[in-house]
Simulated scan of single mutants.
Amino acid sequence: MTEDLIVRREGAAGRITLNRPKALNSLTLDMVRGMQKALDAWRDDPEVRIVLIDGAGEKAFCAGGDIRRLWESARDKDGHAETFWREEYILNAAIKRYPKPYVALIDGITMGGGVGVSAHGSHRVMTERTMFAMPETGIGFFPDVGGTHLLSHQPGEVGTYLALTGARLKGADVIYAGGADAMVDAAAIETLAGELCAAAYTAAAHEEVDAILDAHAIDPGLAPLGDVKPAIDRCFAFDRMEDILAALETEESEFAAETLKTLGQKSPTGLKLTLAGLRRARAQSLETALTMELRMSVRCLDSHDFSEGIRSVVVDKDHAPKWNPPTVAEVEDAAIEAFFAPLGEGRDLSFG
């Protein structure tokens, strides 16, 4: 147990609680390391049959990484950001391939790094309070923590739309977009957690977790995203950001107009970088995508828009970033390609 991360055994479960409610449970390097240590210890412990992760408080599961600390690292060139991303991405891959049920109770705000420690799990449970988003293009960045892999494998071009716009999802849309498997009432979360911990699991623990979740699941209703998916598929099917914007301009609908307005507020470099990463990730395994993402992340440390985006949102909070280049048309393809070059000197990501 630490101040920011509570790790304990409860019945048949290894439990992890992200414990920074005042910071919306945003992740620090120590929290990432604590989670990795717990997962490693529980992997071969016969007394631990499942892993259960949640967030303290009622506002957030996890709103992402500590981006102010990343901004400071970019400013000070102290190496912290690269170390954080490297260990975070290794954790994301470990969650994906974990042999025991990994149950994420994603109650409240779930963004960025919070998606990384939940969406790769075997069982993702949301509530009516869940708000899911990958808003990184708004800070000159891209959906990392395996986000390029997750979003590039969603139905049609829904993932492309979510990655570029940073759209905030609730209700059935979260399940539709692949961020959760089931929905339960927030008031039932503690009861559900208690049953998951108290169950007498056999060798079929995954199926037994399924049964417990099914007993608590509620109907999330229809997903509004489904209504606009045809327009999303038409407009976001292109490999060039310029073509996506042109398609939206000719779509002539309220959805297209609102989407154009939203994209106009994002970092042009972030938009082009995100689209390029998504298209590459379509044919990649999660580990390969994470290796690519580390290259992209490290290069963002030296980019203007990453520091400027965080400054505008978190540091000065004026929400008036000055992007450079200021338009999509002015972002050169060669500049985007440079983000994907190997890091060299043994710095590229490797998995044990």
Rank of each mutant, 00 (worst) to 15 (best):
D233Q: 10
V7P: 03
A211N: 12
V328T: 08
T274R: 04
G57C: 07
Y102R: 03
A200I: 10
G309Q: 01
M111R: 11
F84L: 12
D316E: 15
M241H: 08
H206G: 11
G57L: 03
T262K: 14
S152Y: 04
E293F: 02
P326G: 06
H206F: 11
D76H: 12
E249F: 06
C300H: 08
G55M: 01
H319M: 13
R279P: 02
I6G: 05
L151E: 05
A23D: 15
K317T: 12
D44Y: 10
A172Y: 05
T259A: 06
D185S: 13
G221S: 08
R49Y: 02
I53G: 00
R75A: 11
P325W: 05
A187K: 15
D45P: 08
L24W: 10
M183T: 07
V117W: 00
D45K: 10
D210Y: 07
D78S: 09
G309I: 00
V209I: 10
G270P: 01
A93I: 04
C300T: 09
L301K: 07
T259R: 04
T137G: 04
E10I: 06
L222P: 07
F132G: 00
M241K: 08
A167C: 10
W85N: 05
A247H: 11
S122L: 05
V7E: 12
L301A: 06
I310S: 00
H149I: 04
A81F: 11
L213I: 15
L18G: 01
G147C: 03
E10Y: 11
P99R: 10
L39G: 01
P230Q: 10
H149Y: 14
I6V: 14
A81N: 12
V184T: 02
I95R: 06
G194R: 11
V48W: 02
G171H: 05
L27D: 01
I212T: 09
R347G: 06
P325F: 05
A211M: 10
A341R: 15
A94Q: 15
I106Q: 13
E58D: 15
A341F: 09
W71C: 02
P321A: 07
L222E: 15
D333L: 05
D318V: 07
G112A: 14
L192E: 03
Y201K: 09
D214C: 06
D302E: 15
L343T: 02
A215R: 14
I212N: 08
R33F: 06
R9W: 07
T191L: 13
A119R: 00
G159W: 00
M183H: 04
A119S: 11
R75N: 12
